[in-house]
């Protein structure tokens, strides 16, 4: 089997765009998380909703910051 060149899973040129979009989504979700935290009272808060919003926001923020690092030239 002839050697095949290995490429990155996502083309390099997409990193800046991807980072902008994923970070934007992540930040919006973070905002909604904190709005929920601040507006709902302690009794009426639902833990499941908090955790889901937090988890989804952290997935987007995690990938967004990874792409931001890659776009900046910090190849992790």
């Amino acid at each position: 089997m002839a050697p095949k060149p290995i490429t990155s899973p996502v083309p390099d040129a997409w990193y800046p765009t991807l980072s902008v979009f994923t970070l934007a989504i992540g930040l919006v979700l973070t905002a909604s998380f904190f709005i929920y935290e601040a507006t709902s009272s302690r009794k009426s808060r639902s833990l499941a909703q908090e955790l889901t919003t937090g988890a989804v926001a952290s997935v987007f923020l995690g990938f967004g910051s990874l792409f931001l690092l890659l776009a900046c030239g910090v190849y992790v």
């Binding site: 992540g26 935290e37 833990l47 955790l51 937090g54 926001a57 952290s58 990938f63």
Partner: peptide, 13 residues
């Protein structure tokens, strides 16, 4: 990174 951020949210909760 994801777990880092998630930890932050959990801390807030």
């Amino acid at each position: 990174l994801i777990f880092g951020f998630f930890f932050l949210f959990v801390a807030c909760i």
